[in-house]
Design a protein around this nucleic acid. Structure first.
Ligand SMILES: [Zn+2]
Ligand SMILES: [Zn+2]
Lengths: 584, 584
DNA sequence: TAATGGGTGCACT
DNA sequence: AAGTGCACCCATT
């Protein structure tokens, strides 16, 4: 806890830097307003970015004795207090934020873990055009249930954000409904649209001559769910069609299929084609044994001749599982739920801009029934663990589709947000109605390999060279974060989701899934020192470098995504289920 | 006063329809906020458009017992109160608003008068393309100090609004500066950008096969001033250059010149080319005699052979005046002021949209020094009145650039907003610090000719046929509204503003200025009954119809603006001046 | 393009 | 987490 407190302090300082001013307004008027639409940044009297120069621009005439020196600006209104000439902006607010690095296939775990860090997506193809970035990111983030759109772009930068949710305009409650028009001051609450703070920033580095992609604000004000009816997804599919990316189309057909059948969505069924796919995400395989750390060596069949037959074996076994699961899941198709937890970036303090966007503050909500107390954890699993998974078909599966309330489960990790100082002494709270426990925060920073990518040449071939930093024995540990709430309630016996029959998994397999499971019955994730050193499953980045350098040849001219099959598992957290709502 | 009260009630009802919900929040927290950035719509318990269905979406979990019936929407967050599936919108809120009709050259007076009405711009050229509308409107509204941009458009609609002011981000004052971060609720004030409610709506009528242009929300949250450095203006000039509209370019060069020298801007130096230019706006000519009503017949030289020589005479005389004035004004160039009144749509009640935009409420501001007590009124003046104006060079000129406080001047019109019920009994108030007197409201509705335009053919020739409605003897009376505050302080002896020497006013004069001065020493504008019946100067719309029908031949293929010279005068309101600030 | 109101992606500046 | 001009949308009546 000591180290985490230090980290907490640091993170809190960085967290504060998100805000451009401090606001200490304690007006209880907000109690009557929709808190979902009220921005509530943390109060920080010592915030570096506090705007002491904020212009006080009341409508009342103020005694303004100073003469305007600016010749070109002599029209300041008499009856308005002098308007500010320059807006005070804050720059580089993210420069001091802690950073983490993740491969694109690593992303789902990084999204879970590094909720308040900058997540650098490090192996990124060399995009020929800015317009190629969005489809590439969509391949990754659709699987996370994140529908991205471009917020802003120019020649050297693209900012992505979550697609705006369906408009929700809300109004402030009136305090005096019968007040006269002349005497009552009224106000509208800000719109809640565009309030999600999640951002992906792609900037072109002239020095490296490549695009850097960073997840800037890894938190959401809404639930994450893949929506195959999204316009963005339709456009994305059109793009895949025009670029003849049949492989990706097939994989997203599967995703669509599973989504429409309310099956759990595997975030890794579609590889990101970044050139470094050393991690495999959850595939809803139950992993009963904990403290299993390891990874398979990454091999690429097309480039390395030491092609192993384990790929086809994997495919066959998974196909069998899928067929079983298809029948399994069909029984649960009609069961629906309207309840889902919400991933929030912080507990009492909300991340947000000083603009119109607002973020829900997850305050305590006593009116909420504590229906679901779930805890789940997806683990990545290599092919050598498949046998273990196969034995567990009859066990209930938990999709970690969203953040869950873990406080009542003694065998779970309390994923509270480390940025919330109030939560540090509430880890063992049994009050499951406290939505502050929505926030995951597991300190397993050391688990991720921090890699620095440098370009070995300046052409577009996309040869990458990885420089391993700090630690060579670290294993990637993965927590998967999916977004299918139905399984939590309805699919207690659901194991594998069916795969579409028409998908040919034997074609062009480039990646071997690696595995980085980790223990889930400890509050702190294994440090690099308690590495299990399972040599056969340890990811060796030196090996992957070979793969990366040879697999990015054709990345630049066309969208081409490698076909492979990823396996993973879901950790059974012995969760208690509350089927109150489900049973009506 | 009786009639105006009835009108007031009607206008107030229409005014209320602007708002989509009623807000009766009386929280005095807003006293500490910048009132300029707070939307304060009027409270109207009986508002038709009051949004009783506004979704109450507080962050606290509410006991939500109803099951979600929608199968496809089963992801409602557990810890967020059920988000509304559909936003409640209001439609056709302007359908019941009172309408007024104005020719484009009439606009400045209509903008003054009909602050809460829909102002239909009735003679509008037949635009071949949607993109032609904006430059045409810019020709009109740049002169009003209004920098328009497109807010939204599609194939059949273009919505214009004021260009966003330079961002002015302001923050709420903190109520408890020393509160701790954990206990204090903070909020940011909404941005003041895009808060101006002014809108121009251009919709294509399939029935009429023409574009209808309506000023929807004739009020502003900011001062109006022509800004030659505006990006929109630069683009506008580029458009004029690409379309070889040399005449308009020249006229805007003059406008630029005058603006940069802080000279009064004549809103009519650039004709609108709408096809019906029967009105001439202020040209800063002092009009000593009141109760002069009349107008010259509108003629078009190029199409009508009865070309009169009065045009060149007018030009020469104005040139002489300008030369005199140029020397005059140069003495005052260095005198600047930071004080300017603000045109607001209403006094206590502000017009605004229901979105994020906010509008200043002009509340009483006792801290403001009552420095300037000016009253000015621009009158349109025909050529036959030029002789009168020439005799008055030595008299002080008042540019009606903005709303002024007229309360201390017994010989002035109290242009208070009729929508402000509190102001009805304050006309003789001597408290000039009351900014409620900023608002002009002169009831001269009957002065404007309501014309119904019908298209005589469906081609693009743009032949217009005017149907005079109701009253044929009405004269157009004009109050000009400019936006140069300097003259109020510095140019007590300023008469005419200089014109650039390089402008050739003898070329291609198409329009003859008409005149519609009116008495300024009455509190109410001359009704149609006290028409002076000066037959030589009475605008005859039947005559203008001939002109209109023949002058719109080339409107559709290229921007071509007729060159003419407009004369006007400024009414000396015997205003008392307070030179406190000027003299330091 | 029935008329009228609004959301929002996203590139320009 | 640039702000905003603008267009492609959609919703309601
Ligand atoms: Zn989001
Ligand atoms: Zn405006």
């Amino acid at each position: 806890m000591n180290g985490s407190n230090i980290q907490l302090e640091q993170d809190f300082q960085d967290f504060k830097s998100l805000f451009k001013q401090e606001n200490t307004n304690n007006d209880n008027r907000f109690d009557l307003l929709d808190l979902n639409s009220i921005m509530t940044p943390p109060i920080s009297p010592s915030t570096k970015n506090s705007n002491n120069n904020s212009n006080n621009n009341s409508n009342s005439n103020s005694v303004n004795g100073n003469k305007e020196a600016n010749v070109n600006d002599n029209t300041t209104a008499k009856n308005i207090v002098q308007l500010p000439k320059k807006k005070k902006k804050t720059y580089n607010t993210n420069k001091n934020k802690p950073k983490s690095y993740s491969t694109p296939n690593n992303l789902s775990s990084a999204l879970l873990k590094d909720q308040n860090k900058l997540i650098h997506l490090d192996p990124v193809p060399n995009f020929n055009d800015k317009s190629e970035i969005k489809p590439w990111l969509q391949k990754i983030f659709f699987l996370q249930g994140i529908d991205i759109v471009i917020e802003r772009s120019d020649s050297g930068k693209v900012i992505f954000k979550c697609k705006s949710q369906t408009p929700k305009r809300r109004y402030a409650k009136s305090l005096n409904h019968n007040a006269t028009a002349a005497t009552t001051t009224t106000a509208t609450t800000p719109l809640s649209s565009s309030s999600c703070p999640f951002r992906i920033r792609a900037t072109f580095s002239l020095k490296l001559k490549k695009w850097n992609i960073v997840v800037v604000n890894n938190s959401h004000s809404h639930e994450l769910k893949f929506n195959p009816n999204s316009d963005e997804y339709k456009k994305f599919k059109d793009y895949l069609k025009t670029t003849n990316d049949v492989e990706t189309l097939k994989r997203f057909e599967e995703l669509e299929y599973r989504s429409k059948l309310n099956l759990p969505i595997n975030p890794s069924i579609i590889p990101c084609d970044c050139g470094l796919t050393s991690e495999v995400q959850s595939f809803n395989i139950i992993l009963p044994t904990s403290k299993i750390c390891g990874a398979t060596k990454v091999q690429k069949i097309n480039h390395n001749n030491n092609s192993n037959n384990s790929n086809s074996n994997l495919i066959d076994s998974i196909k069998n599982k899928n067929k079983k699961l298809k029948n399994f899941n069909k029984q649960n198709l009609l069961k629906k739920t309207t309840n889902q937890n919400l991933l929030l970036s912080s507990s009492n303090t909300s991340v947000g801009t000083s603009g119109n966007s607002t973020l829900t503050s997850t305050s305590t909500s006593p009116a909420s029934p504590p229906s679901y107390k779930d805890s789940s954890l997806s683990l990545s699993l290599g092919s050598n663990f498949l046998d273990i998974s196969n034995d567990l078909f009859s066990q209930p599966i938990l999709t970690p589709d969203f953040m869950q309330d873990l406080t009542n489960n003694t065998n779970t990790i309390n994923y509270q947000n480390a940025f919330d100082p109030q939560m540090n002494n509430k880890q063992n709270s049994t009050n499951s109605t406290d939505v502050k426990t929505d926030l995951f925060e597991i300190d397993f920073t050391d688990i991720f390999n921090k890699t620095n990518m440098t370009s070995t040449n300046n052409n577009n071939r996309g040869d990458f060279k990885y420089i391993k930093s700090n630690n060579q024995n670290k294993n990637d540990n993965i927590i998967n974060y999916l977004n299918d709430p139905n399984l939590i309630e309805n699919s207690s016996a659901l194991l594998f989701s069916p795969l579409p029959d028409e998908i040919d998994y034997t074609s062009n397999n480039l990646f071997l899934p690696s595995v980085t499971p980790f223990s889930s019955d400890t509050k702190r994730i294994p440090s690099p020192n308690n590495n299990n050193n399972n040599s056969t499953t340890t990811t060796n980045l030196a090996d992957t470098n070979i793969f990366v350098g040879s697999s990015t040849d054709d990345l630049n001219n066309q969208w081409h995504f490698d076909s492979n099959l990823n396996l993973a598992s879901i950790d059974n957290e012995q969760t208690e289920y509350d089927f109150t709502d489900f049973l009506k």
